[in-house]
């Protein structure tokens, strides 16, 4: 009950914070000197991207805790999948908001910048993770395999990032980094940005909690299923009369001629 209350409280808070961010971002803060109203994406895009990385971080930690024997529990697997799903949604949002910002700012929807490319690969990487979880397997096997996949992804992301940075910087300057530096953030804008970060982090926590609840509920459903099966199994094995009959009157299938002869 308390967890339901907490979940609702987090949900309401996150909605209020997002609403506040919208108001602050659209009406209170001034337009940027260079980018005009476009700069208002600042209050959405970086927080969304941060949440995506935060979500994958949580997935990685939970997966590691699942694989480590002393802490092995399907609870971690549920946290991992809950967080990864929200992470994929936010990675998608990061790519979309980035594109929307990039089109007017740089004149293109997409550029082969290191950060963009890494994010795109990250998106596909975790789509694969979620697809892997869809293979019909027993919960323990699925948990183990997806934890291995999540940890490989965790090791892979910095490698992807470094390789893409070298790939690009050996040829051209990092476009986003220089553009980003032009946008001076101060005063009310900084506060709104901070608000954005808090708001989207709360949204993430809320979504992950709801998703975790769904996982727990389906696990509980499986547990009731298990109890039903267990009862069924027990009933199978304790049909009393017949068993007693078998015990007391040796059936012809059991007592072979050879055995009788030896006695």
């Amino acid at each position: 009950m308390t967890s339901t209350l907490l979940r609702k409280a987090v949900g309401v808070t996150s909605l209020l914070l997002v609403a506040a961010t919208v108001v602050m971002g659209l009406f209170v803060t001034p337009p940027d000197v260079v980018q005009g109203n476009l700069a208002r994406l600042l209050y959405v895009h970086p927080p969304v991207a941060w949440v995506a990385y935060l979500a994958y971080g949580v997935t990685s930690i939970a997966s590691g805790l699942y694989l480590w024997r002393p802490t092995r529990s399907l609870k971690w697997d549920r946290i991992a999948v809950a967080s990864a799903e929200v992470g994929v949604v936010f990675t998608g949002l990061t790519l979309v908001t980035g594109s929307i910002w990039g089109r007017p700012a740089w004149g293109v929807w997409w550029t082969w910048d290191a950060r963009l490319t890494t994010t795109a690969i990250l998106f596909v990487l975790y789509l694969g993770y979620l697809a892997l979880r869809r293979i019909p397997l027993s919960p323990e096997v699925r948990a183990k395999r997806s934890a291995v996949a999540a940890l490989i992804a965790f090791i892979d992301v910095p490698i992807v990032h470094e390789s893409v940075v070298w790939w690009r910087t050996l040829h051209q300057g990092a476009t986003v980094a220089t553009l980003g530096a032009n946008t001076k953030v101060h005063g009310i804008m900084a506060w709104t940005l901070l608000l954005g970060f808090i708001a989207f982090t709360m949204v993430y926590i809320w979504m992950a909690m709801v998703r975790y609840r769904v996982e727990t509920m389906s696990a509980e459903l499986e547990a009731t299923q298990f109890e039903a099966w267990e009862a069924e199994r027990l009933a199978e094995s304790t049909t009393g009369d017949e068993a007693i009959g078998r015990l007391l009157d040796p059936s012809p299938g059991v007592q072979s001629d050879q055995g009788v002869a030896r006695r």
Partner: peptide
Amino acid sequence: ALSSSEHSGESLLPLLVIPVLAP
């Protein structure tokens, strides 16, 4: 090994491997 299963695993392999091997 991760995607090996009696069903539906094989077509998943490319999606899993390609992004990891991007570097």
